[in-house]
């Protein structure tokens, strides 16, 4: 139960996202809001991935960063958010939402090495 109104910039943006299994699976890199002037403004999704992060860089750095990291991102519906505290906790596992893909991919490569 939150005692004060939700401050999207302070309480949500840039916070670590934790999936239903309790594993970190990215950060809230941007938020998608819907609603025109005079209408009710609604948060519809969390954007996670290099795309929204690259856009937040200074212009001179943006192109180079986009070339290296790409502009892809995952869109996580706001209805997936279970709770907001120090981290943003989701209702589903990361794999179902398209998050933490690289961790799983790289994990499969590493699994071939002894001691992994």
């Amino acid at each position: 139960m939150m005692e004060r109104p939700l401050d999207l910039l302070r309480d949500v943006l840039d916070h670590t996202i934790v999936d239903a299994d309790g594993a970190p699976c990215g950060t809230v890199d941007d938020l998608l809001l819907e609603g025109g002037p005079g209408q009710l403004l609604k948060v519809t999704a969390l954007l996670v991935g290099p795309g929204p992060l690259v856009r937040r860089l200074p212009r001179w750095l943006e192109r180079a960063a986009a070339w290296i990291f790409g502009r892809r991102y995952a869109r996580v519906s706001w209805s997936e958010v279970e709770s907001i505290s120090a981290t943003v906790t989701l209702r589903s596992p990361a794999a179902k939402l398209g998050l933490g893909r690289w961790d799983r991919k790289v994990g499969r490569w590493l699994a071939r090495i002894p001691g992994s």
């Binding site: 690289w102 961790d103 799983r104 991919k105 790289v106 994990g107 499969r108 490569w109 590493l110 699994a111 090495i113 001691g115 992994s116």
Partner: peptide, 10 residues
């Protein structure tokens, strides 16, 4: 294990 935090290990 390294594979449980794969990107960290890399």
């Amino acid at each position: 294990t390294p594979r449980s935090a794969a990107r960290f290990a890399v």
